[in-house]
Amino acid sequence: MGMDMNKDELIALYRQMLLIRIFEDKSAEMYAKAKIGGFLHLYNGQEAIAVGALSALRPDDDLVTHYRDHGYALARGLNANAVMAELFGREGGTTGGRGGSMHLADVDKHFWGGYAIVGGHLPLAVGLAYANVHHKTDRIVMCVMGDGSTNIGTFHAALNWAQLWKLPVIFLVENNMYAMGTAINVHSAVIEIYKKASAHDMYAERVDGKDVLAVHEVVCRLAERARGGEGPALLEAVTYRYRGHSMADSDVQRSKSEIAEQKMRDPIPTFAENVLLKRNLLTQADMDRIQKEIEAEVEAAVQFADASPEPALNTLYENIYAHPVANMQSGGSLIGPATLYSGNGKHG
Protein backbone atom coordinates (compact mmCIF):
# COMPACT_ATOMS: atom_id res chain seq x y z
CA MET A 1 0.00 0.00 0.00
CA GLY A 2 1.16 3.50 -0.74
CA MET A 3 3.57 2.08 -3.29
CA ASP A 4 2.03 4.39 -5.88
CA MET A 5 3.13 7.43 -3.87
CA ASN A 6 6.54 8.92 -4.42
CA LYS A 7 8.96 10.01 -1.72
CA ASP A 8 7.77 13.62 -1.62
CA GLU A 9 4.14 12.57 -1.33
CA LEU A 10 4.89 10.19 1.51
CA ILE A 11 6.87 12.84 3.37
CA ALA A 12 3.99 15.27 2.80
CA LEU A 13 1.65 12.86 4.60
CA TYR A 14 4.02 12.82 7.56
CA ARG A 15 4.36 16.60 7.59
CA GLN A 16 0.58 17.08 7.50
CA MET A 17 -0.06 14.64 10.35
CA LEU A 18 2.65 16.26 12.41
CA LEU A 19 1.34 19.74 11.63
CA ILE A 20 -2.10 18.72 12.87
CA ARG A 21 -0.70 17.16 16.04
CA ILE A 22 1.45 20.17 16.91
CA PHE A 23 -1.30 22.61 15.92
CA GLU A 24 -3.78 20.84 18.20
CA ASP A 25 -1.37 20.77 21.14
CA LYS A 26 -0.79 24.48 20.67
CA SER A 27 -4.55 25.09 20.44
CA ALA A 28 -5.01 23.35 23.79
CA GLU A 29 -2.35 25.60 25.23
CA MET A 30 -4.05 28.69 23.81
CA TYR A 31 -7.39 27.51 25.17
CA ALA A 32 -5.85 27.21 28.63
CA LYS A 33 -4.60 30.77 28.21
CA ALA A 34 -8.16 31.86 27.29
CA LYS A 35 -7.06 33.00 23.85
CA ILE A 36 -9.67 30.57 22.50
CA GLY A 37 -13.20 30.45 23.87
CA GLY A 38 -16.27 28.24 23.66
CA PHE A 39 -15.84 24.69 22.43
CA LEU A 40 -12.56 23.28 21.21
CA HIS A 41 -12.66 19.73 19.85
CA LEU A 42 -9.18 18.41 19.20
CA TYR A 43 -8.13 15.82 16.63
CA ASN A 44 -5.12 14.25 18.37
CA GLY A 45 -4.88 10.56 17.52
CA GLN A 46 -7.12 10.71 14.46
CA GLU A 47 -4.71 12.51 12.11
CA ALA A 48 -4.19 9.62 9.73
CA ILE A 49 -7.81 9.74 8.60
CA ALA A 50 -7.98 13.35 7.40
CA VAL A 51 -4.54 13.16 5.86
CA GLY A 52 -5.01 9.77 4.24
CA ALA A 53 -8.49 10.58 2.93
CA LEU A 54 -7.80 14.03 1.50
CA SER A 55 -4.59 12.88 -0.15
CA ALA A 56 -6.75 10.47 -2.14
CA LEU A 57 -9.15 13.16 -3.39
CA ARG A 58 -8.76 15.87 -5.98
CA PRO A 59 -8.38 19.40 -4.60
CA ASP A 60 -11.66 20.35 -6.28
CA ASP A 61 -13.63 17.53 -4.69
CA ASP A 62 -16.06 18.94 -2.16
CA LEU A 63 -15.52 18.47 1.56
CA VAL A 64 -18.08 18.77 4.35
CA THR A 65 -17.14 17.81 7.89
CA HIS A 66 -18.23 17.60 11.49
CA TYR A 67 -17.04 20.13 14.07
CA ARG A 68 -13.77 18.29 14.85
CA ASP A 69 -12.50 19.99 11.76
CA HIS A 70 -9.03 21.48 12.35
CA GLY A 71 -7.30 18.45 10.87
CA TYR A 72 -9.41 18.56 7.73
CA ALA A 73 -8.83 22.28 7.29
CA LEU A 74 -5.06 21.86 7.55
CA ALA A 75 -5.02 18.74 5.37
CA ARG A 76 -7.04 20.62 2.75
CA GLY A 77 -4.32 23.23 2.67
CA LEU A 78 -5.91 26.05 4.64
CA ASN A 79 -3.29 28.33 6.04
CA ALA A 80 -2.42 27.58 9.68
CA ASN A 81 -2.36 31.32 10.35
CA ALA A 82 -5.97 31.76 9.22
CA VAL A 83 -7.10 28.66 11.12
CA MET A 84 -5.49 29.81 14.37
CA ALA A 85 -6.86 33.34 13.86
CA GLU A 86 -10.34 31.85 13.50
CA LEU A 87 -9.91 29.98 16.78
CA PHE A 88 -8.93 33.31 18.33
CA GLY A 89 -12.07 34.95 16.84
CA ARG A 90 -10.16 37.45 14.74
CA GLU A 91 -10.68 39.27 11.46
CA GLY A 92 -7.87 37.30 9.83
CA GLY A 93 -9.60 33.99 10.52
CA THR A 94 -11.04 31.67 7.89
CA THR A 95 -14.50 33.19 8.38
CA GLY A 96 -13.44 36.48 9.94
CA GLY A 97 -14.22 35.30 13.43
CA ARG A 98 -17.85 34.43 12.68
CA GLY A 99 -17.68 30.66 12.89
CA GLY A 100 -14.87 29.77 15.24
CA SER A 101 -13.35 26.33 15.78
CA MET A 102 -16.39 24.32 14.73
CA HIS A 103 -17.07 26.18 11.45
CA LEU A 104 -13.80 26.42 9.60
CA ALA A 105 -14.26 26.74 5.84
CA ASP A 106 -12.68 27.82 2.59
CA VAL A 107 -15.09 27.61 -0.31
CA ASP A 108 -12.33 28.45 -2.80
CA LYS A 109 -10.69 25.21 -1.71
CA HIS A 110 -14.03 23.37 -1.87
CA PHE A 111 -14.13 22.98 1.89
CA TRP A 112 -17.77 23.85 2.64
CA GLY A 113 -17.38 23.91 6.33
CA GLY A 114 -17.36 22.20 9.61
CA TYR A 115 -20.84 21.75 11.09
CA ALA A 116 -21.76 21.46 14.71
CA ILE A 117 -25.24 19.97 14.86
CA VAL A 118 -24.54 16.26 14.94
CA GLY A 119 -25.67 14.76 11.62
CA GLY A 120 -27.02 18.08 10.35
CA HIS A 121 -24.47 18.37 7.56
CA LEU A 122 -25.14 14.99 5.97
CA PRO A 123 -28.08 16.17 3.84
CA LEU A 124 -26.02 19.19 2.75
CA ALA A 125 -23.34 16.87 1.41
CA VAL A 126 -25.96 14.94 -0.54
CA GLY A 127 -27.24 18.21 -2.00
CA LEU A 128 -23.74 19.30 -3.02
CA ALA A 129 -23.31 15.98 -4.76
CA TYR A 130 -26.59 16.54 -6.58
CA ALA A 131 -25.36 19.96 -7.73
CA ASN A 132 -22.18 18.35 -9.08
CA VAL A 133 -24.21 15.86 -11.09
CA HIS A 134 -26.69 18.55 -12.18
CA HIS A 135 -23.82 20.65 -13.49
CA LYS A 136 -22.27 17.62 -15.17
CA THR A 137 -18.99 17.82 -13.28
CA ASP A 138 -17.13 14.72 -12.10
CA ARG A 139 -16.39 16.20 -8.68
CA ILE A 140 -17.34 14.04 -5.74
CA VAL A 141 -18.22 14.92 -2.16
CA MET A 142 -16.62 13.65 1.02
CA CYS A 143 -18.81 13.92 4.10
CA VAL A 144 -17.07 13.31 7.43
CA MET A 145 -18.82 12.43 10.68
CA GLY A 146 -18.24 10.62 13.95
CA ASP A 147 -19.68 7.34 15.17
CA GLY A 148 -22.11 9.29 17.34
CA SER A 149 -23.83 10.75 14.28
CA THR A 150 -24.83 7.36 12.89
CA ASN A 151 -27.81 7.07 15.23
CA ILE A 152 -29.59 10.26 14.28
CA GLY A 153 -32.37 10.59 11.71
CA THR A 154 -30.43 12.63 9.17
CA PHE A 155 -27.82 9.85 8.91
CA HIS A 156 -30.42 7.45 7.54
CA ALA A 157 -32.31 10.08 5.55
CA ALA A 158 -29.09 11.18 3.85
CA LEU A 159 -27.82 7.68 3.13
CA ASN A 160 -31.16 6.64 1.70
CA TRP A 161 -31.36 9.69 -0.57
CA ALA A 162 -27.75 9.42 -1.78
CA GLN A 163 -28.20 5.76 -2.65
CA LEU A 164 -31.64 6.33 -4.19
CA TRP A 165 -30.31 9.00 -6.56
CA LYS A 166 -26.87 7.31 -6.97
CA LEU A 167 -25.04 10.46 -5.94
CA PRO A 168 -21.24 10.69 -5.67
CA VAL A 169 -20.74 10.93 -1.91
CA ILE A 170 -18.26 9.16 0.34
CA PHE A 171 -19.65 9.09 3.87
CA LEU A 172 -16.57 8.82 6.07
CA VAL A 173 -17.32 7.76 9.62
CA GLU A 174 -14.51 8.35 12.09
CA ASN A 175 -15.28 5.72 14.68
CA ASN A 176 -13.30 6.85 17.71
CA MET A 177 -15.44 4.61 19.92
CA TYR A 178 -17.17 7.40 21.81
CA ALA A 179 -20.11 9.74 21.17
CA MET A 180 -18.92 12.55 23.40
CA GLY A 181 -18.33 10.40 26.48
CA THR A 182 -20.72 7.56 25.70
CA ALA A 183 -19.00 4.37 24.60
CA ILE A 184 -20.06 2.83 21.31
CA ASN A 185 -21.56 -0.27 22.89
CA VAL A 186 -23.76 2.02 24.98
CA HIS A 187 -24.83 4.35 22.13
CA SER A 188 -25.22 2.06 19.15
CA ALA A 189 -26.90 -1.31 18.66
CA VAL A 190 -24.51 -1.94 15.76
CA ILE A 191 -20.89 -1.44 16.81
CA GLU A 192 -19.40 -2.24 13.42
CA ILE A 193 -20.65 1.02 11.95
CA TYR A 194 -20.05 0.10 8.30
CA LYS A 195 -22.81 -2.49 8.56
CA LYS A 196 -25.38 0.28 8.94
CA ALA A 197 -24.90 1.11 5.24
CA SER A 198 -26.47 -2.21 4.31
CA ALA A 199 -29.84 -0.90 5.49
CA HIS A 200 -29.67 1.45 2.50
CA ASP A 201 -28.14 -1.06 0.07
CA MET A 202 -24.96 1.02 0.11
CA TYR A 203 -21.45 -0.24 -0.52
CA ALA A 204 -19.32 -0.01 2.62
CA GLU A 205 -15.87 -0.82 3.93
CA ARG A 206 -14.00 -0.67 7.21
CA VAL A 207 -10.40 0.49 7.51
CA ASP A 208 -7.75 0.93 10.16
CA GLY A 209 -7.98 4.65 10.80
CA LYS A 210 -4.54 4.72 12.34
CA ASP A 211 -2.88 3.64 9.11
CA VAL A 212 -2.58 6.64 6.82
CA LEU A 213 -1.69 4.56 3.76
CA ALA A 214 -4.56 2.17 4.31
CA VAL A 215 -6.97 5.09 4.50
CA HIS A 216 -5.42 6.63 1.39
CA GLU A 217 -5.72 3.40 -0.56
CA VAL A 218 -9.35 2.70 0.26
CA VAL A 219 -10.46 6.29 -0.36
CA CYS A 220 -8.71 6.17 -3.77
CA ARG A 221 -10.85 3.18 -4.68
CA LEU A 222 -14.09 4.64 -3.30
CA ALA A 223 -13.45 7.96 -5.06
CA GLU A 224 -12.86 6.24 -8.38
CA ARG A 225 -16.05 4.29 -7.86
CA ALA A 226 -18.12 7.39 -7.04
CA ARG A 227 -16.58 9.40 -9.86
CA GLY A 228 -17.40 6.61 -12.26
CA GLY A 229 -21.10 6.89 -11.47
CA GLU A 230 -21.33 3.82 -9.26
CA GLY A 231 -22.91 5.80 -6.46
CA PRO A 232 -22.13 6.57 -2.84
CA ALA A 233 -20.20 4.53 -0.30
CA LEU A 234 -19.67 4.48 3.42
CA LEU A 235 -16.22 4.09 4.93
CA GLU A 236 -15.75 3.38 8.60
CA ALA A 237 -12.30 4.37 9.85
CA VAL A 238 -11.60 2.90 13.27
CA THR A 239 -9.59 5.25 15.43
CA TYR A 240 -9.19 6.74 18.88
CA ARG A 241 -8.99 10.29 20.14
CA TYR A 242 -6.38 11.02 22.76
CA ARG A 243 -8.13 13.94 24.40
CA GLY A 244 -11.64 14.32 25.74
CA HIS A 245 -14.59 15.22 23.54
CA SER A 246 -13.71 18.88 23.89
CA MET A 247 -11.44 20.93 26.09
CA ALA A 248 -14.39 21.28 28.46
CA ASP A 249 -14.47 17.49 28.94
CA SER A 250 -12.76 16.18 32.09
CA ASP A 251 -12.55 12.79 30.35
CA VAL A 252 -13.17 10.79 33.51
CA GLN A 253 -15.22 8.11 31.77
CA ARG A 254 -12.30 6.60 29.86
CA SER A 255 -9.68 4.72 31.82
CA LYS A 256 -6.07 5.90 31.78
CA SER A 257 -4.94 2.43 30.84
CA GLU A 258 -7.26 2.39 27.82
CA ILE A 259 -5.86 5.69 26.58
CA ALA A 260 -2.28 4.59 27.23
CA GLU A 261 -2.85 1.35 25.34
CA GLN A 262 -4.25 3.25 22.36
CA LYS A 263 -1.24 5.56 22.32
CA MET A 264 1.06 2.55 21.95
CA ARG A 265 0.12 2.49 18.28
CA ASP A 266 0.20 6.17 17.46
CA PRO A 267 -0.42 6.83 13.74
CA ILE A 268 2.43 9.32 13.36
CA PRO A 269 5.49 7.48 14.76
CA THR A 270 4.08 4.22 13.38
CA PHE A 271 4.11 5.70 9.87
CA ALA A 272 7.53 7.24 10.43
CA GLU A 273 9.07 3.96 11.57
CA ASN A 274 7.29 1.49 9.31
CA VAL A 275 7.51 3.53 6.13
CA LEU A 276 9.75 6.58 6.18
CA LEU A 277 12.68 5.18 8.17
CA LYS A 278 12.34 1.62 6.97
CA ARG A 279 12.44 2.69 3.32
CA ASN A 280 15.22 5.17 4.03
CA LEU A 281 13.12 8.10 2.85
CA LEU A 282 14.06 10.15 5.89
CA THR A 283 16.71 10.02 8.58
CA GLN A 284 16.08 10.78 12.23
CA ALA A 285 17.91 14.07 11.66
CA ASP A 286 15.48 14.93 8.84
CA MET A 287 12.59 14.19 11.13
CA ASP A 288 13.99 16.37 13.87
CA ARG A 289 14.36 19.20 11.36
CA ILE A 290 10.77 18.78 10.13
CA GLN A 291 9.55 18.83 13.71
CA LYS A 292 11.33 22.13 14.34
CA GLU A 293 10.03 23.65 11.09
CA ILE A 294 6.45 22.78 11.99
CA GLU A 295 6.82 24.05 15.53
CA ALA A 296 8.01 27.35 14.07
CA GLU A 297 5.07 27.39 11.61
CA VAL A 298 2.57 26.87 14.44
CA GLU A 299 4.27 29.45 16.63
CA ALA A 300 4.03 31.90 13.72
CA ALA A 301 0.32 31.09 13.43
CA VAL A 302 -0.14 32.07 17.08
CA GLN A 303 1.75 35.31 16.47
CA PHE A 304 -0.41 36.01 13.39
CA ALA A 305 -3.63 35.28 15.28
CA ASP A 306 -2.62 37.44 18.20
CA ALA A 307 -1.77 40.34 15.89
CA SER A 308 -4.95 40.02 13.85
CA PRO A 309 -7.56 42.59 14.92
CA GLU A 310 -10.94 41.71 16.35
CA PRO A 311 -13.71 42.01 13.76
CA ALA A 312 -14.97 45.60 13.54
CA LEU A 313 -18.28 46.19 15.33
CA ASN A 314 -19.70 47.98 12.31
CA THR A 315 -19.50 44.71 10.34
CA LEU A 316 -21.95 42.99 12.69
CA TYR A 317 -24.90 43.26 10.33
CA GLU A 318 -22.94 42.23 7.26
CA ASN A 319 -23.79 39.03 5.41
CA ILE A 320 -26.94 38.16 7.30
CA TYR A 321 -28.51 38.21 3.85
CA ALA A 322 -26.85 37.78 0.48
CA HIS A 323 -29.49 40.00 -1.02
CA PRO A 324 -30.54 42.60 1.56
CA VAL A 325 -33.77 44.42 0.83
CA ALA A 326 -35.24 47.59 2.26
CA ASN A 327 -36.52 47.58 5.84
CA MET A 328 -34.09 44.82 6.79
CA GLN A 329 -34.02 45.70 10.48
CA SER A 330 -37.52 45.88 11.84
CA GLY A 331 -38.61 49.42 12.53
CA GLY A 332 -38.23 51.01 15.91
CA SER A 333 -35.62 48.69 17.34
CA LEU A 334 -33.32 50.40 19.79
CA ILE A 335 -30.58 47.96 18.87
CA GLY A 336 -29.28 49.08 15.52
CA PRO A 337 -26.11 49.65 13.56
CA ALA A 338 -26.16 53.34 14.39
CA THR A 339 -25.70 52.73 18.11
CA LEU A 340 -23.01 50.16 17.42
CA TYR A 341 -21.06 52.56 15.23
CA SER A 342 -20.97 55.06 18.05
CA GLY A 343 -19.35 52.47 20.28
CA ASN A 344 -21.86 53.08 23.04
CA GLY A 345 -22.92 49.49 23.36
CA LYS A 346 -26.31 48.05 22.69
CA HIS A 347 -28.51 50.75 24.11
CA GLY A 348 -27.67 54.03 22.46
Partner: peptide
Amino acid sequence: GVGIGAAM
Protein backbone atom coordinates in the same frame (compact mmCIF):
# COMPACT_ATOMS: atom_id res chain seq x y z
CA GLY B 1 -31.12 19.74 3.89
CA VAL B 2 -30.45 18.29 0.45
CA GLY B 3 -32.03 21.43 -0.95
CA ILE B 4 -29.60 23.57 1.06
CA GLY B 5 -26.64 21.59 -0.24
CA ALA B 6 -27.85 21.82 -3.83
CA ALA B 7 -28.36 25.57 -3.39
CA MET B 8 -24.82 25.92 -1.98
